[in-house]
Design a protein around this nucleic acid. Sequence first.
DNA 1: CAGGTTTTTGCGTTTTTGTGCAGGAATTTT
DNA 2: AAAATTCCTGCACAAAAACGCAAAAACCTG
Lengths: 249, 249
Amino acid sequence: MLKKERQAYILHQVNLHNKVLSSSLCAEIKVSEDTIRRDLQELADEGKIIKVHGGALSHSFNQVHFSTNGVYSQNQKKTIAQKAIGLISNGMFVLTSGGTTILELARSLPPQLKATFVSGSIPAILEYMHHPNIEVIIIGDKISKNSKITVGSEAIAKIRQMKADICFLGTNAIDAEHGITDNDWEVVQLKKAMIESSKKVVCLTISEKVNTVQPIKVCGLNDIDMLITELSPDDPLLKPYVNAGVRVA
Amino acid sequence: MLKKERQAYILHQVNLHNKVLSSSLCAEIKVSEDTIRRDLQELADEGKIIKVHGGALSHSFNQVHFSTNGVYSQNQKKTIAQKAIGLISNGMFVLTSGGTTILELARSLPPQLKATFVSGSIPAILEYMHHPNIEVIIIGDKISKNSKITVGSEAIAKIRQMKADICFLGTNAIDAEHGITDNDWEVVQLKKAMIESSKKVVCLTISEKVNTVQPIKVCGLNDIDMLITELSPDDPLLKPYVNAGVRVA
DNA sequence: CAGGTTTTTGCGTTTTTGTGCAGGAATTTT
DNA sequence: AAAATTCCTGCACAAAAACGCAAAAACCTG
């Protein structure tokens, strides 16, 4: 990995998460802590970041203070993303939906991962594009402005043509009785196609949305292979799903 | 292998992968590392790539140059965008390529305009998405990270299926003798398809790029209907194109 | 086509750059 | 106050770049 490339990656990470630990960076990119420190120093000299003890901060960090709720669920989503990343290995063909949880997954992908990511979600695609080693394929069709995702028959037809190794679904509502449900008809059609075109289906959701129901059904619990939340797998909230035969992490 | 040929190959590789290692290059083409380094130096001097220790990076890699150059020619591009917008009317089906000039066009679209915009350029799509009244259709396929545009046979096939009212091409080089030329093979394929699928082809370019040539040919002057620059239509620089039968604005 | 000039290329040698390591200083945490 | 990180400094080593030079190729040109 080239030096400039590495620094660009670091800068991207800092701007993304507003902070970065040199320890975690040197774990992600496999270089010595010294190198990271020198990179941070250089970036700081250029005024791109603020260097602090143990890592660096984004320049805009001081001013912008996130709402407690935002930061709160952000951490939950980071946890979920980490668990999900453990399921991805090199060379995989990965299908993802949209949503903020998927976005967090996209942002947390380790830089050395080599895989192909397919999505119709514009924000997710933007994140994938910044990654140095993954191939990005976008599903084309009309863009739904409120969900920022491509929807329509063309998109569905394209998804049907593929067979992904794994599919990550950002989930709006999951319930032991009603399964996965959502509130946007077109997005639901897309998710259905994604589920059918994947060997393995993984649902990502924060615990807030567990045991909630939305108007339109995506699929039953038997169609999903795994459920990932920020909770421990043996949390009692998740018991019904374990009983229904869903793997929980 | 000829020098020019070799440099064209290198440039293509850089545009394709965003980065290139001089070590891998001198293994691919069987020449000494010195020769590669000299080639990279020349290409860097011409501003085609950014040379770094160990190889080279694509120009779009660091957004620093993007912004400085952007600020510099922003006003020219705004002028161009305004002229181009005059050609769009309600209900039209508009096909656009990528590039910063197209981006400026996207940003300057009047809010009351109702039309359908089709593109494979992710930055352009992002701008179109913010517009209240236009329908946005994205061309799906693999994303070329350096040009941030979808490229590949699927994308070309999709474009072939449509017939747009008008097509706006961001142009990298135009010359009275060689026509429109570019430096990325895959992007050229896409532009060719766009030209064929449109009733009317409009080239947008800042005057800097008029009378310049790039390695790969997109089309001749007879294939385009209109050329828009920030200059006055009767500017002597544009005379050769008027003589060649191109409408100039 | 012969002879000269320019361009291009490869090869040592020397410099520069990038990276990791060790040990001690500084800072944070407990 | 003690322990644990993190940081800085100097140093060593490897990789890459720069430089000068010479051989080879290409290219004029009369």
